[in-house]
Design a protein around this nucleic acid. Structure first.
Lengths: 116, 116
DNA sequence: TGGCGAGTTGGCAAAATAGCCAAATAGATT
DNA sequence: AATCTATTTGGCTATTTTGCCAACTCGCCA
């Protein structure tokens, strides 16, 4: 493939691939309300701790989540607060028919009281 | 991984993986304005025709694009008209900070003149 | 009806991903 | 300092994805 095309679209493609795994989507939903540790998330998902650690590392590399240490444990939470809104947007998109379109706007949460 | 988790998130993950390749993102941008044939797209991207055919087939399977025959050629176009809006939304999302959130709404294109 | 142009499909090899186990690390507690 | 807990990293295998070539299909047109 032409190098210029790779350069232009690789970064965006990588973000999508970060979201392209059931375990990682599960994690994102779980930590939306409350942050969780690696062990907690691994148990909830039913996979090995090391596997979960690698999934979390991948999400972290794309700045989708962020970890904070508390004693020994690392508690992960969303670093993009509107991620779940985005996911909802993705769902709407896939059901979007020819007479519809999606409008996505970025609001500051502070002053747009009607944002929800 | 727990089967229930796979069941719940696999479909959504698959849509993201359909978008998780530079060539496919390139295609989606190319056919946003005008539909193109397999050969045209393969040449633009600089890859083999059969490879492009498989990329298009994947996008077709998730109802993201649609092909229409004209003589021998198949011209592909978006079947989700708001897909590029969604992509823009994805870009905003990745730059979304803690004081911001994204609002996504689905409008009927027909009567919402101020949709853009 | 015989070829031609365009696309698809099958097969294979290379690369990337995902999973587990085991070992290493980092910090807390005794 | 020794140990215990939580996490990360390395290594390996299995699976999936990507990409090319070659072969096949399908419809068009001479």
């Amino acid at each position: 493939m032409k190098q210029e095309i790779i350069d232009r679209y690789q970064a965006e493609a990588s973000v999508f691939s970060a979201l392209a795994h059931p375990t990682r989507l599960f994690v994102l939903h779980q930590i939306n309300n409350a942050s969780h540790s690696v062990t907690e998330l691994a148990q909830m998902a039913g996979i090995d701790i090391s596997t979960m650690s690698k999934h979390l590392d991948l999400l972290k590399r794309y700045n989708i989540i962020r970890g904070e240490k508390d004693k020994n444990a690392v508690y992960y939470k969303l670093s993009i607060p509107c991620l779940l809104d985005f996911m909802k947007c993705a769902k709407q998109m896939t059901s979007c028919q020819s007479e519809c379109r999606i409008i996505c706007k970025e609001y500051t949460q502070l002053r747009e009281g009607d944002a929800g």
